[in-house]
């Protein structure tokens, strides 16, 4: 690969849950480097540690040991607040369960990360409307999650994730709650943001069909990286 520092580099990351006798080691030493602009699918059976790895990568959880560099910065040494600021500045999240704020309009949901960034109201509205238009929800700005289908809710979540133009989009089973046709639409959307805006995508999935959209597939097994290969079809 290129000689420059990768966007993300994990070295010997472990994560242990519990204390004393009842400990469970979810990650047993992960080494992984991810380049800017890549589209990486993380696969593996349940309990293989793929979601834990994703949470560590997204700074939603802290590793027990190991080294996590983001743009050359040692993330595991950052404080809670610094990690929150890193998420605010560089990361966007899409979850399996959408995780939109209930009883809140699509527009206000998408605006939320911009409010925390301290954007002015005018800029905020314009950016949120543009993001909703990009995910194909023009005209749905004032609907609440309860009034939207699953696919539409996930589109709102994607709009919320990309409205800040993040460096990395982290998607945890983004199509897990959706039917096949809607899943394809969502994957195409994510693929578009990856290709056209150069947003690095990290996606956890257990469906090979969805992983096929990625350029690189990392398989987890029992808390370790089992295989790491470039996808033939999507490259």
């Amino acid at each position: 690969m290129t000689g420059t520092t990768p966007l993300i580099r994990l070295t010997g990351i472990t994560k242990t849950y519990g204390r004393g006798q009842a400990t469970f080691q979810a990650l047993k030493g992960i080494d992984l480097a991810i380049e800017t602009g890549d589209f990486v699918a993380i696969m593996g059976p349940s309990g293989s540690g793929k979601s834990t790895a994703m949470n560590v990568l997204g700074c939603l959880d802290t590793p027990t040991s190991g080294r996590y560099e983001f743009k050359g910065v040692r993330v595991e040494a950052l404080s809670r607040n610094q990690r929150a600021l890193l998420r605010r500045r560089y990361l966007g999240f899409v979850f399996q369960g959408f995780n939109l704020l209930a009883r809140t309009t699509a527009l206000e949901n998408v605006e939320l990360p911009l409010i925390y960034r301290g954007e002015r109201a005018g800029t905020r509205h314009a950016a949120a409307r543009a993001a909703l238009e990009q995910v194909g929800l023009k005209g749905w700005e004032h609907h609440t999650p309860a009034e939207l289908s699953g696919g539409q809710q996930q589109r709102v979540a994607i709009a919320r994730a990309i409205v800040t133009r993040p460096a990395v989009l982290l998607a945890d089973e983004p199509t897990g709650n959706l039917d096949t046709r809607t899943s394809e639409e969502i994957m195409n959307l994510i693929g578009t943001f990856n290709r056209e805006q150069g947003i690095t995508v990290l996606m956890v999935t257990h469906e090979p069909d969805m992983a096929a959209y990625a350029r690189r597939i990392v398989r987890f097994l029992d808390g370790r990286v089992d295989s790491d290969r470039r996808s033939v079809e999507a490259a």
């Binding site: 809670r80 607040n81 929150a84 999240f93 995780n99 925390y116």
Partner: peptide, 19 residues
Amino acid sequence: TERTREIGIRLAIGALERE
């Protein structure tokens, strides 16, 4: 319960604890 999840969402998209 609902509010705890809401707090989780807010933290995930970049809110500081004090905010």
